[in-house]
Amino acid sequence: MTTRKDRYAFRISESSYIEMQEQALRDGAKQGIAVALVALEKALGWRKIRLERVYGVVDELLHLPQIFGHDVTADDAIAYLRKTYGIDVDQLDVCADAGGKE
């Protein structure tokens, strides 16, 4: 079987790849926080003041690198919720569509 080289393929540096990964993680975190705020608004009827308070607290916590004794990661937060409250975020049925289609 013969194949042609994809003329649209391009190489990226390792540092660019790491930067793209970090941006994807930041975007995912922002999207998760947005979904959580919308859930609070829809499920509990929270409005501007309460949502802003939660947003402010989350923003502060994200800027405190030593909450768990080291930089905060999503794995740390998931493990903390599971251990402390028995809330297993890994069990959420999350629908993801990378193509942006419904």
Rank of each mutant, 00 (worst) to 15 (best):
M1Q: 04
K5P: 06
K5R: 13
D6E: 11
D6C: 07
R7S: 13
R7K: 14
Y8W: 15
R11M: 14
R11G: 12
R11Y: 14
R11C: 12
I12G: 02
S13D: 03
S13E: 08
S13P: 02
E14K: 05
S15R: 11
S15F: 11
S16P: 01
S16F: 05
I18F: 07
E19V: 05
Q21H: 02
Q21N: 02
Q21K: 04
E22H: 13
Q23D: 12
Q23N: 12
A24G: 08
A24S: 07
D27E: 07
D27C: 07
G28M: 07
A29L: 14
A29F: 10
Q31Y: 09
G32Y: 01
I33V: 12
I33C: 09
A34T: 03
A34R: 08
V35S: 09
A36T: 06
L37Y: 01
L37F: 01
V38A: 11
A39Q: 13
L40Y: 05
L40E: 04
E41H: 10
E41G: 10
E41A: 13
K42R: 06
K42I: 02
A43E: 06
A43G: 07
G45D: 00
G45M: 00
W46L: 03
K48W: 00
I49Q: 09
R50N: 01
L51C: 00
L51R: 00
L51P: 00
R53G: 03
V54Y: 00
V54P: 00
V54A: 01
Y55V: 02
Y55D: 03
G56Y: 02
G56D: 02
V57G: 02
D59W: 06
E60T: 10
E60G: 06
L61G: 15
L61D: 12
H63Y: 04
L64F: 12
P65V: 03
Q66F: 14
G69F: 02
H70L: 03
D71Y: 14
D71M: 11
T73S: 08
T73Y: 04
A74K: 12
A74R: 10
A79T: 14
Y80N: 06
L81Q: 15
L81T: 15
L81I: 14
L81Y: 15
R82C: 15
R82F: 15
R82V: 15
T84I: 11
T84F: 09
D88C: 08
D88N: 10
D88I: 08
D88E: 13
V89Q: 03
V89E: 04
V89R: 01
D90S: 15
Q91L: 15
Q91V: 15
Q91N: 13
D93H: 04
V94H: 04
V94E: 06
V94N: 06
D97N: 08
D97M: 02
A98D: 02
A98P: 05
G99Y: 03
G100Y: 01
G100C: 01
K101C: 03
E102N: 05
E102T: 07
